[in-house]
Design a binder for these strands. Structure first.
Length: 642
DNA sequence: CAGTGAGCGAGCTTCCGCTTGACTT
């Protein structure tokens, strides 16, 4: 109460447009007289959020956590009455009995119930489930804040609202669709492929992505090509360059070859083979060379946005060689100990507290020359971002530097904190200033080119450089220097070298690149990326070998089955578009039972899930993964199952 | 006669998303 008073004092209470503020103010005061021992109950999702909130609010607020969802569909039963508008049956989660009885007890003494679950689809549903299970007779208000600061909490008390039924409807539609899809299609797998298998809206597209890549790699045909590099000398300075053109024909490189043919796809390019390369080298050593073109252009490079769940996992996997699940476990620890903000988020926004802390730290550690005039604002490009929390960053209004905390943390925890601290600071630092130089050396017939990159001002690169999956690409902070030269200047060639190359297939997915792919497609949520990675390995769909994800025979069989009988369900575009429809439901533009009706019973000429479930399944073929010929040319089928 | 293994039938598996401990390996 004390806190609320001081908040009010900061407000212009005489402002007529905010007269209802005064009204709630009076209500709150009246509680003091009504019942000295009566309190307000605030329910949040996470226990550590409850602890933080306690520091801000006085004794008149009881703050408890629901610890996530409290009710769900039953585990051993479909729990959806398809004939009755997809009516769901909910049961209280077994492990939440304690939480529920505690909440019921606290509510007996409460004057008002504030539901402060997360401001997103799932949070709205948790709030609604709470009212269903607690059945409160006291006033219920929905409280929404995006960060835990005085200002944000004050505003949330000023703008309490009712539960948003459309948002709850969208969550229910999501839940019911996942149940119908997951349970019913899984059962078809048991009867037609192998017992115990699983399918679902998220896991099945995930394994399809891995299987598709493996198939692409199997079809890959290697192509051979040659390149020529030269060492040139300008006034005693050596530099390397690469043959770009001969007689106005560009020299072919790896990406110019067909992946399934190994043959050049563009006819106007020149693909060098060994003899051609050797002959050219011979001819080049007799030529005289001069600088035919110099291009210099300044470039700026902007920092990466601060971490969200997916990018934290990617960098944790790449830089620290952790798994998705390890990254999340470690981050959870850091969060609970108060070192970082919430680690399951899809928002790249930083709160004003974080912006201040970053700017102070940058000024102190690197000086004002690394500090932009204004804080940098990032806008999410991720489809379907719900942005219930801020980006992942060091906690508090002043950031503890990695050195400060080194003694308190285990090695990996410290490394992850260090990464988060650096990434956050870098995101608020000045852009890097680069000077890119492109030089062409010609003998009138062939052209070599050399690229230079000079970092004139490092900006954020001083603190953080992102790691890369693709070994062909160069890291952002890699410099390459060229000596100063003038157009028309002659240069001497010291050496020409022919190099043999082979084209490479697309690399296998890693946990990092698969999480990235799923996020770009809008499949899965921050709280589930790590679980999906664990799940597809545990169920024997994918094996991880030196970080690379390799699909098993089971995965091939399941993907083949789903593509044949449930084509849309594993269509990545379709899966991603479901999310758009759920958004429409949350904006009240569509009703959830209408959506589920289309999904299950079909729409126009598109069959729904029900029709697909009723198809005739070819059991024998579904178990066949491949057919081989033995030495007598007899066909041997490889099947799975028992 | 004891031990092995084929054959049969019953019972079970499964989704996604939100949160932590309480478990085992």
């Amino acid at each position: 109460m004390e806190f609320y008073h001081s908040l009010k004092a900061q407000n212009n209470i005489f402002n007529i447009t905010r007269i209802y503020l005064l009204y709630t103010f009076i209500l709150d005061v009246s509680f003091i007289y009504m019942a000295a021992d009566s309190t307000n109950l605030i329910i949040v999702e996470s226990p550590s959020k409850a602890r933080t909130l306690k520091r801000y609010l006085g004794d008149n607020y009881q703050i408890e956590a629901s610890v996530g969802h409290i009710r769900d569909l039953p585990k051993s039963d479909l729990g959806v009455d398809i004939e009755n508008n997809f009516k769901p049956t909910y049961v209280a989660a077994e492990d939440k009995a304690k939480v529920i009885s505690q909440l019921k007890k606290l509510m007996k003494n409460a004057a008002t119930l504030y539901l402060a679950t997360d401001p997103d689809r799932e949070g709205e549903a948790i709030a609604w489930h709470l009212t269903e299970i607690l059945n409160p007779s006291i006033p219920v208000k929905r409280l929404v804040f995006h960060e835990i600061t005085k200002k944000a909490i004050q505003e949330s008390f000023d703008h309490t609202r009712d539960i948003d039924k459309s948002l709850v409807g969208a969550q229910e539609a999501r839940r019911i669709l996942d149940r119908l899809w997951g349970y019913q299609v899984s059962q078809k797998l048991w009867y037609n492929v192998k017992g115990g298998l699983s399918a679902g809206r998220v896991q099945s597209p995930s394994i399809k992505i891995v299987v598709d890549r493996e198939k692409e790699r199997a079809k890959f045909k290697e192509g051979e090509y040659w390149s020529i590099t030269a060492q040139f000398d300008s006034k005693g300075n050596n530099f390397e360059s690469r043959l770009k053109e001969v007689e106005s024909h560009k020299i072919a490189i790896g990406k110019d070859f067909g992946k399934e043919t190994g043959v050049l796809t563009k006819s106007d390019l020149l693909a060098l083979d060994e003899s051609r390369a050797t002959k050219l080298v011979e001819a080049f050593s007799k030529s005289s060379w001069l600088v035919s073109k110099i291009e210099q252009k300044p470039a700026t490079q902007n920092p990466y946005p601060p971490f969200i769940t997916s990018t934290l996992q990617q960098e944790g996997i790449r830089k620290l060689k952790m798994s998705s699940q390890q990254v999340m476990r470690t981050a959870q620890h850091l969060y609970e100990e108060g070192y970082i903000t919430y680690m399951r988020t899809d928002s790249i926004s930083l709160s004003s507290e974080a912006l201040n802390a970053s700017r102070n730290a940058i000024k102190k550690l690197y000086g004002t020359e690394f500090l932009p005039d204004k804080p940098r604002v990032f806008k999410s490009k991720v489809k379907n971002a719900q942005e219930a929390h801020e980006a992942i960053r060091p906690a508090g209004s002043t950031f503890q530097s990695p050195k400060d905390v080194q003694g308190n943390l285990k090695e990996l925890e410290w490394k992850l904190y260090d990464l988060i601290w650096k990434r956050t600071l870098a995101s608020q630092m000045k852009s890097a200033k680069l000077l890119k130089t492109n030089v062409e050396i010609s003998d009138g017939n062939a052209i070599f080119d050399a690229k230079g990159k000079v970092i004139e001002f490092p900006g954020f690169l001083k603190v953080y450089v992102e790691d890369i999956d693709d070994p062909g690409k160069e890291k952002d902070d890699k410099e390459s220097l060229l000596p100063p030269m003038n157009e028309g200047e002659s240069v001497s060639a010291t050496e020409f070298t022919p190099n043999q190359h082979f084209t490479k297939p697309s690399p296998r997915y890693t946990e990092a690149s698969l999480v990235k792919e799923l996020e770009e497609l809008g499949i899965g949520r921050p709280s589930t990326y790590a679980a999906i990675m664990g799940n597809i390995q545990q169920r024997g769909y994918v094996r991880k070998v030196k970080g690379a994800l390799i699909p098993t025979f089971t995965a091939y069989a399941v993907v083949q089955f789903l593509e044949r009988y449930f084509t849309d369900m594993v269509n990545l575009q379709y899966t991603a578009s479901l999310e758009d429809t759920l958004d429409a439901i949350s904006r009240s533009e569509m009703k959830s039972d209408e959506f589920l009706g289309y999904f299950y019973f079909g729409q126009n000429s598109t069959p729904g899930l029900q029709a697909l479930l009723d198809s005739e399944f070819d059991k024998d073929q579904s178990r066949t993964i491949m057919e081989l010929k033995d030495e007598n040319d007899e066909t041997i089928a490889v099947k799975i199952g028992r």
